[in-house]
Design a protein around this nucleic acid. Structure first.
Lengths: 246, 246
DNA sequence: CGTATATTTGAAAGCTGTCAACACTTGTGG
DNA sequence: CCACAAGTGTTGACAGCTTTCAAATATACG
């Protein structure tokens, strides 16, 4: 099993070795894709449930005017469309923004997982559910914060999410982002995102290096953003897990 | 079973009479609450999975500055926290904005439902998943639309969602909303929400009547908002259902 | 009837978007 | 290796949208 995905599952701290083994067997298929490739298209359907083993993607919708809104970033350890089989079609696209490695299993095996390996099913549901919480925070970010705080808040969130799957050390942090991606995520124009970006850069909170962004001072960024990490829980609730073991 | 909730389940068009019977037994508990009561509090936990049989609520988070962002409106037929048992605590509050009737069942029976009544489990997951799609559209609304379109778009969405559970006729539509709720949902200041509101009122698209909002011309509103209803699917995907019957 | 909540208004400040043009980087093919 | 194209970053000016402030009015509620 891929190391990052393993870390993510392991960080939840309640799967046993059998569960891991099952997961390892279940997610056999591997494929590599390039930056810019679409994993899923608005209006399309999905026959396999996919897992990000490595690389970044964005989940986005495009509006009538042609500009897009990024809903969320898809990181190593994330699930893509766990419950997608019950929907007629996807309402968003998923597009790789780095080269990626994906694992997957056929969507019609999902029921089997729920029936036979409930702890794993719960874990996967939990991972998928995290996604909804991140969407909620994205709404607060866009709806109630000014541009500068918005950007700082997003950057800190991404760092925390990376750290969770063993991807980055405490201090420095490289994000494969550019200003366009930031503006499309934050609901800002490209020009204004650039202005805000320069401001953070001027204050030595971030810098750029060969096409990626480096977070220089996470403490200050988090402070600037009033970052409250509550919505990024480390794992499922203990009692729920114990209930499963009865 | 309550008529609106029944409508919602029935509109999915694939539960059989046994499933309905099970659902009816499962969701025995009933309670009425008043406008302003909290169904769930930020930081609290939830031991029962709750269903809106009648009335409206809002799901919201408050930011450090004290102002709140409404994430979504909770309408008849909606589920509150289907997967909540796997989380340590709630990251948002749910607050009634009208008097309400709620049904519920103990959270620890959820696994039983997944094991024994998979079609019902699927239906409930589908209803809960709809919520995520609505959140996504909320992100696009706030991130990529101007104030006027934002408001029009939200109003049309609410109408469509009400229609889906048999709550309103094709033409007119009463929404138990005020300008504060609209501004808190749309990420606007109260003052600006008011200006936009008056504009829609002036154009005879909406009007007020004893504390609620009436949508006067849904076609024009939808047109003004570039409303695309794709994200509000009527029910789960056929093939997924058939797979369950094997 | 009094208090709290919601609506209303105007003016001013400030944030953000748009426009338009230019520089820079990256990747591709010759 | 160079030239070109495409994408990304940069800048200033300006318009326009939105917030904030502050105060008055209206409405709902006990």
């Amino acid at each position: 099993m891929n190391i990052f995905f393993y870390h993510r599952l392991e960080s939840l701290n309640f799967l046993d070795s059998e569960d891991f083994e099952f997961a390892d067997h279940l997610i056999q298929d591997r494929r590599n894709i390039d930056s810019g490739d679409f994993i899923l298209t608005e209006g399309g359907t999905q026959r396999r449930i996919q897992f990000v083993l490595d690389g970044w993607a964005i989940r986005h919708k495009s509006s009538v005017d042609g500009d897009r809104q990024i809903l969320n970033f898809v990181l190593p350890g994330d699930v893509i469309g766990l419950f997608s089989p019950i929907y007629k079609q996807s309402e968003h696209s998923v597009e790789a923004i780095t080269s990626m490695t994906l694992g997957s299993f056929p969507a019609d095996r999902l029921l089997e997982v729920f029936r036979d390996v409930p702890r794993l099913a719960l874990t996967l549901s939990w991972v998928a559910g995290q996604d909804e919480r991140i969407l909620e925070e994205q709404i607060v970010r866009i709806g109630r914060r000014r541009a500068t705080k918005r950007m700082a808040h997003l950057l800190v969130e991404l760092h925390r999410r990376l750290r969770r799957c063993g991807y980055t050390r405490e201090d420095a942090c490289h994000l494969p982002l550019n200003q366009l991606l930031l503006s499309d995520s934050l609901g800002l124009s490209h020009v204004h995102a650039h202005r805000v970006f320069r401001e953070l850069e001027k204050d030595a909170l971030i810098k750029r290096e060969s096409g990626s962004i480096i977070l220089l001072d996470l403490r200050l960024l988090a402070e600037l953003a009033d970052f409250d990490a509550g919505y990024l829980e480390p794992g499922p609730h203990g009692p729920a897990v114990r209930a499963l073991n009865n």
